[in-house]
């Protein structure tokens, strides 16, 4: 296997991994209301780059699943759509956080074994 192939395959798998994590990351930031671009910047500042082609449709999907609510604000310099967690979303986020911790611990342990071998 060439380095190129390793790189390419890694990139594909990482992308898959990120796809699941992004939902959790987005939900975690929306306990306070934010508009799309500020959310994207916020995630980027904390080291998670999400491209807009993924983020905005995702926000809409989450809203359709009743995890978020949104409304247009016109009091700022231009109309912006603000998103915030719904009560349902808060409960789901809480459950998911517990799950995430469990998965993270398990996978960390597995990877630890890998290192030791």
């Amino acid at each position: 296997m060439t380095d190129d192939a390793v790189g390419e395959q890694t990139q594909n798998l990482v992308q898959e991994l990120r796809r699941g994590v992004i939902v959790l990351a987005v939900l975690s930031q929306l306990d306070q209301e934010q508009y799309g671009y500020s959310l994207m910047k916020g995630l980027e500042d904390r080291g998670l780059q999400v491209d807009q082609g993924t983020l905005y449709p995702l926000l809409r999907r989450l809203e359709e699943q009743n995890l978020l609510t949104s409304d247009w604000r016109v009091d700022t310099s231009r109309p912006r759509r603000y998103y915030i967690l719904s009560d349902f979303g808060k409960k789901v986020l809480h459950e998911m956080t517990t799950e995430w911790t469990r998965i993270k611990t398990t996978v960390d342990n597995l990877l630890q074994n890998e290192k030791e071998n």
């Binding site: 671009y37 910047k41 905005y56 247009w72």
Partner: peptide
């Protein structure tokens, strides 16, 4: 609604 949101985002990005 989607177009309106994309517009608002683009303007934010351009300004930034």
């Amino acid at each position: 609604d989607i177009v309106k949101e994309i517009n608002s985002t683009l303007l934010d990005m351009i300004e930034d």
